[in-house]
């Protein structure tokens, strides 16, 4: 066997198969230095890697955005439903809050009053604009009788014209068949308040010499024994001389809008209470408006010791000259 007969091919294969891994195992990898020969490859690979990353991240981002959009749409629909639900709840809560405020004011009024008051809810109303009536959820089974007064803390609503077992009908202050014996609070002149139109009353039987100004408060006289004395009915919004200048034609805006009434009181015994202001309060009494006609005799201040009734009227109306 000659040395020349050595199979170099086999030896080379053996070397690569066994030798190289053995050699490689003993080579320490220096992470800090890049061999100069590898630098161009590193540079190129870096560029390619970055390009691939940018491309793949772009594709992935677009795909994710699309997938998210589907999710967002679904989520948006859910949120919208939730929002609608919350809105409905908010509306109901606001309604409850307002009802609570109204009921609280009614309760305060009932507590501070000497009258026997029966609270009732409005359940229906007349639908013709020329005839005004409300139906409440209390009837003669609850003690309501014909001709009993219906009021709110803000003013007169009307009186009972029909009492059935469980419901009663209230004729409103603005109905043309309504008649209330009334006083001009400041001048103490008496007149008859009748319904005029859907939102106004008319004070009649006031002679032309009577001292009446726009903004004067009209109160109940108490003579009918239906309403307590001195309870607000409305406010003068227009004063004109009647035909032949014998009477004055006075239009009155009700102290409350009877059509907006949702809860009210029925007075079971009006004689126990008087809402007449004390003499010192009379000096600072109405008219409520700042604007006075030139022949005004009253220079009284319109603020200061104002009564709650007066405040209520100030809030509810903005009288015109």
């Amino acid at each position: 066997m000659s040395v020349l007969n050595f199979d170099y091919k086999k030896a080379l294969i053996l070397f690569f198969l066994v030798g190289l891994p053995v050699i490689s195992a003993n080579i320490t990898h220096d992470s800090h230095d890049t061999h100069w020969a590898l630098a161009p490859f590193s540079l190129i690979s870096q560029g390619i890697q970055r390009s691939y990353f940018t491309l793949s991240s772009g594709v992935r981002g677009t795909t994710r955005t699309y997938l998210n959009l589907v999710g967002i749409k679904k989520k948006n629909r859910l949120l919208e439903e939730k929002n609608d639900e919350l809105r409905a709840q908010l509306g109901a809560l606001t309604e409850l809050k307002l009802e609570n405020q109204r009921l609280n004011s009614l309760l305060d009024f009932q507590k501070n009053s000497n009258m026997d008051l029966l609270a009732a809810k409005v359940i229906a109303s007349g639908t013709l604009p020329d005839h005004s009536a409300l139906v409440i959820d209390k009837g003669y089974e609850h003690g309501i009788q014909k001709n009993m007064a219906a009021i709110t803390p803000g003013g007169v609503v009307g009186y009972v014209i029909e009492s059935l077992p469980k419901t009663s009908k209230i004729l409103l202050i603005t109905d043309r068949y309504m008649v209330v014996d009334a006083l001009i609070q400041r001048s103490r002149s008496r007149g008859i308040l009748e319904g005029y139109s859907k939102h106004l009353g008319h004070l009649s039987h006031i002679d032309s010499s009577t001292d009446v100004l726009i903004g004067d408060l009209i109160v109940t006289s108490g003579l009918q024994k239906v309403f307590p004395k001195g309870f607000p009915v409305g406010q003068v919004i227009s004063v004109k001389d009647g035909p032949q200048k014998i009477n004055k034609e006075i239009l009155v805006k009700p102290a409350i809008d009877p059509y907006k009434t949702e809860e009210l009181f029925i007075i079971l015994n009006p004689q126990n209470e008087s809402f007449e202001p004390k003499p010192d309060e009379m000096e600072t009494a109405l008219p409520l408006t700042d604007a006075q006609p030139n022949n005004s005799e009253s220079d009284s201040p319109s603020s200061g010791e104002s009564s709650p009734l007066k405040d209520n009227l100030n809030q509810e109306s903005s009288p015109k000259q």
Binding site: V122, A124, S125, T127, V135, Y259, K260
Partner: peptide, 18 residues
């Protein structure tokens, strides 16, 4: 009844049908 009661609940003071 619808005209006087239900209409009042939903449409308040707006004119009701006759």
């Amino acid at each position: 009844s619808f005209q006087s009661s239900i209409w009042l609940q939903f449409f308040s003071q707006s004119p009701a049908p006759s």
